[in-house]
Design a protein around this nucleic acid. Sequence first.
DNA 1: TATTTTTGCTAAACCGTTTTAACAAAGAAG
DNA 2: CTTCTTTGTTAAAACGGTTTAGCAAAAATA
Lengths: 336, 336
Amino acid sequence: MNDIAQRLGVSKTLVSLVLNGKAKEHRISDEVCKKVIDLAEELNYKPNQIAKGLRTGKTNTIGLIIADIANPFFGKLGREIEREAALHGYRVIFCSSDERAENSKTQIEMLQQGQVDGFIISPPAGSQDQILSLEKSKTPYVLVDRFFSEIESSYVVIDNFQASYDAIKHLVKKGFKNIACVTLSARLVTMLDRVEGYKKALEDTGIGFNERFLKILPFSHEKDDVFKAVRELVLDEEESPDAILFTTSKVGIMGLECIHSLGLKVPENVAVVSFDDPDAYRISQPPVSAIAQPLKEIGKQSVQILLDIINSKESNPSRKEIVLKTNFIARKSSEG
Amino acid sequence: MNDIAQRLGVSKTLVSLVLNGKAKEHRISDEVCKKVIDLAEELNYKPNQIAKGLRTGKTNTIGLIIADIANPFFGKLGREIEREAALHGYRVIFCSSDERAENSKTQIEMLQQGQVDGFIISPPAGSQDQILSLEKSKTPYVLVDRFFSEIESSYVVIDNFQASYDAIKHLVKKGFKNIACVTLSARLVTMLDRVEGYKKALEDTGIGFNERFLKILPFSHEKDDVFKAVRELVLDEEESPDAILFTTSKVGIMGLECIHSLGLKVPENVAVVSFDDPDAYRISQPPVSAIAQPLKEIGKQSVQILLDIINSKESNPSRKEIVLKTNFIARKSSEG
DNA sequence: TATTTTTGCTAAACCGTTTTAACAAAGAAG
DNA sequence: CTTCTTTGTTAAAACGGTTTAGCAAAAATA
């Protein structure tokens, strides 16, 4: 910038004003204005964002902390968020907490030192204190995929209860009666709601909830845990389920691996329905019925809400709690 | 920082020196030193990285521009890179170019204004000018997954030629003779090498390369393109292949979807082998033989090489060209 | 005692922008 | 011919740190 100013024999103030489109309101003559713009173009001048950020206190950057980047669900969500952010002139700094509260803590603290204007976070279990700390420091943030009922936050999630409920209704309609559910012990509303929807649907249909058909895996679910749970279900001699609902695709994929490895047929021996809709479910033989999430919409809404918070001058912008509908895709794995 | 300095009645210079561990070399007394550290702790002081970056010209941030975040291969790679970077005290700003040169151009330019110390890039086809421009401006960068043979860069890739070669040898050993290949028209060495390895193996085994068995999809490969290509192969009445090599998992997944939709059996009607090893291949029935890439190693090496370049004082650090071995995982889809 | 060296610390410049406040010169009004 | 406005421009402060150069006071040496 100094370079431009000197070559043209004007002040850098003038250059700054012109390049920020404030020429008019500061009555810079059109002639000088044009010269500056032309030279800037010629030199391919790009303002140093760091310096700009230092002065303005704005970074035009969003910190995105997702739970697991290796999970295509979050990968796709990340892409949507980045796309929407770009539309508004925002960059995205991306971190993956790998579902560990220690990680997200470090990452949030790291980015909070003037690096970002706000956060979009899918908080791992046990990270309540971090969210509270954001709340206290008045840092703009939006939660996605999950939230903590004990903390008032803006968030964008899906209707997990209804999604489970509908999936079970679907299974019942297809004639399945002994419906199991394999889920995670995560202390996250998301997971709890999915189980509640499962239970409620079983009760409403008169089938009733059977404790033995609900398998809750340790949170750090290894392949072995999933295999063990699924084996216990399908190999039980007294009563084995004729259908299983998996509450995440990660568990579902491992569950299917297990079912296949036991030589059982889907859906003849056991039907399968799962949350999320990874590629794997489409090419699996048979293809797997899935509860697909509206990723585009989640990304779009979360960015827009965050930017609203960032741009709102009031200290206490209204909270937005967005609950989106899911899309149930019936495939062969749940044919009666 | 000013706050700390004032409370203790010392200069901010001193505070800065102490907190940056330069107390010893500047002979700050242990007593004062301790007071500063304690108060900083108490106030939970975190230096503003933006201000720091402005003065030092270092951001401790890596710009990662991958080709497609929704692809689990890149997702997992991203995680490994982030992990390795964190070990060295670096952050990662992440962007997805969606395989489009315009996108990566915008992203690189955006981040180049003082936002990052260097780049790790999986360059989309047609982005040569961008890499040259990085080269010209002496911006540290490392390419991953692909590189341009006409540009001298540091890069970390796998031995694509050998990987294909070995996969075909495996198929031949299992008794397959009419081996097709479905690939992308991308002008990327990565893809070309995979096809070369395929051809060479066919020639070395005496089978010979059959033009009709090589399907090159338009680069913007839609599902329809893949379906059309696969259908042309397997439904050909004169000569249809008994095995197919897919050169990416994205194509492979769609290809399998097509094969299944035609009611054909894998590997009875047609065997399948594919590059990359997404979850889908493990749970698919039958599981799909895969050419798995050493993601951890790619991530680790790319970060280390980039940091070497960043930290090397010489203006022309030596180029590193790393070619890693792949891991062929034989599964049921290629049983004879 | 006079000079030099060491010790412990600080003032001020600097990084590249934005923004505030002001200031000449020219034109308009009285 | 003053005085007030308007026009076009700029100097300087600010952002929050790091770094350079230097300065007193104390200690060591001559």
